[in-house]
Simulated assay, not measured.
Amino acid sequence: MLIHSSSLHFPFPDAPKPLSLTEVAPGVLWLRLKLPFRLDHINVYLIEDAAGWTLVDAGLGDVAGLDAWSSLLDGPLSGMPITRLIVTHHHPDHVGAAGWLSRRLNVSLYMGEAEYRIAQNILLSPSALDSEDHRRFYLDHGLDAGITSEVVAMGRKYQEMVTILPSTFCPLIPGSSIQIGKRNFVILSGGGHSAQQLMLYCPASGLFFAADQILARISPNVGVWSADPNGDPLSLYIQSLDDLKGRMPDDVLVLPGHDLPFRGLHRRVDELKDHHKSRCAVIEVACEEAPRSASELTGILFPKVQDVHQMRFAFSETLAHINTMVTSQRLRWVKAHGYPKKVMSLDPEKQ
């Protein structure tokens, strides 16, 4: 979801060109890898360490992603030993090439335990994505059977984008710290976008590696998925934004997983919170008119969705807003006449 912001400061308005590096702080390099999605890139970072460089995030592990890494390692990164790999969360654009890189470079993988376990579970149990529970999750909320089959099939593509992870890893513990070169980073974690997405904050240098938790011009996907159909990730996400705003100054340099580095953290937090508040308001108005299924509300919130890939994320985000409104008793689930069996709809709770 695009949220335009004119209140932020972008100290590096031009993204790095392919196979090139941009220094964003002393001993911190930024490079960008292509993605085959509407969000067509990911930012990865190199932090100067005692014996070389620590790499933060890995990009996709598909053929194009691995070819890009081969060109980087044989080109601009040759002579720059990578001695450690940190992956912020299990999404394929962040963890995809991690297994391949750990083997090629003979380096350890550092990752939050929950995110590592989720990635391994998906990689080692792909048949679970075809289970009846996964399909029923979408069907029960009114999604068409044909679209449901396509959405479920999209989930299986994870194995095509993520290389096999090492069987051992070094767990990063939220609340602890990690020394990278001369800098000491506090390890932070935030829910909503992913179960235990990790972020790195160096107060002394004013650097915040934000992963996907806060982005400059788009809202990161905050979604409900079939494994936790009644979860409330949006409340976790808002809490995380409040925590970040309370912990860091407004002028910290935010180094995100997508888009451009920026300053203006506090303003961006407020914009993102206002965005989700407005999404809930749209849902409430729609449900005052008539009971709605989650599928119908997806069409109202995201009328320009063009493909199954976008539909999958739009549906999950719509349900995240629904669940947080049910939790706060702004809405309630009701049986709706005329809907398929077990499909629920929404209706405002009348006080």
Score class of each variant (00 low, 15 high):
Ile178Asp: 00
Ser78Thr: 12
Pro18Tyr: 12
Ala114Asp: 13
Gln213Ala: 11
Glu349Phe: 14
Met344Asp: 12
Lys304Phe: 13
Leu188Gln: 08
Ile180Pro: 02
Trp100Asp: 08
Phe169Asn: 02
Leu319Cys: 08
Pro303Ser: 00
Pro229Ala: 06
Ser189Asp: 10
Lys350Cys: 14
Pro126Val: 03
Ser71Lys: 13
Gly299Lys: 11
Val252Phe: 11
Cys287Trp: 02
Ile178Cys: 13
Val269Cys: 15
Leu297Ser: 06
Leu31Met: 14
Ser295Leu: 00
Gln213Thr: 11
Leu101Gly: 02
Met311Glu: 10
Leu46Lys: 00
Lys245Ala: 10
Pro26Met: 03
Gly79Met: 02
Arg104Trp: 11
Phe137His: 12
Pro174Lys: 00
Val87Thr: 04
Val107Thr: 02
Leu85Met: 04
His90Thr: 14
Gly99Asn: 01
His41Val: 04
Asp62Arg: 06
Ser226Pro: 15
Asp259Asn: 06
Leu236Glu: 09
Pro11His: 04
Thr83Ala: 00
Leu2Asn: 13
His309Phe: 14
Phe208Pro: 05
Ile322Ser: 13
Pro220Val: 02
Cys280Lys: 07
Leu105Trp: 06
His134Gly: 07
Leu346His: 00
Ser20Lys: 10
Glu115Arg: 01
Trp225Asp: 05
Ala15Met: 15
Gln329Phe: 10
Ala153Lys: 12
Pro256Gln: 12
Pro261Met: 06
Ser125Gly: 06
Tyr116Met: 05
Leu255Asp: 05
Val343Arg: 00
Leu31Phe: 15
Phe302Arg: 06
Ile86Tyr: 01
Ala227Tyr: 12
Glu132Ala: 14
Gly155Lys: 01
Leu244Asp: 13
Ser189Cys: 10
Arg32Gln: 10
Arg84Val: 01
Gln120Gly: 03
Trp30Asp: 02
Asp212Ser: 05
Val63Asn: 08
Asp242Ser: 13
Ala204Trp: 04
Leu129Tyr: 03
Phe315Asp: 12
Glu288Ser: 14
Gln329Lys: 08
Leu165Ile: 11
Ser6Leu: 09
Val254Asn: 12
Lys245Trp: 06
Trp225Asn: 04
Cys280Ser: 12
Pro18Trp: 08
Leu31Arg: 04
Leu109Glu: 03
Val151Met: 15
Val56Asp: 01
Gln329Cys: 11
Tyr339Gln: 10
Trp333His: 05
Lys350Gly: 07
Leu198Met: 10
Thr22Arg: 10
Ile122His: 05
Gly75Glu: 02
Leu77Met: 03
Gly155Phe: 07
Ala50Pro: 07
Lys245Val: 03
Met111Lys: 02
Ser194His: 02
Ile86Glu: 00
Val308Met: 05
Leu35Val: 12
Asp93Ile: 03
Ala119Lys: 02
Glu115Ser: 07
Ser219Val: 15
Asp93Gly: 12
Glu150Asp: 10
Leu139Phe: 11
Ser102Gln: 00
Leu73Cys: 02
Met248Phe: 09
Ile238Gly: 03
Asn230Gly: 14
Ser70Asp: 14
Leu215Tyr: 09
Thr88Ala: 09
Gly175Val: 09
Tyr116Ser: 09
Ala286Thr: 07
Leu73Gly: 04
Ser240Pro: 03
Pro26His: 03
Phe10Asp: 06
Asn106Arg: 10
Pro76Thr: 04
Ser235Asn: 11
Cys280Tyr: 05
Ser108Arg: 09
Asp228Cys: 11
Arg247Tyr: 11
Lys34Ile: 04
Val162Gly: 01
Leu272Gly: 07
Gln310Asn: 09
Ala58Lys: 00
Glu132Thr: 09
Val305Ala: 12
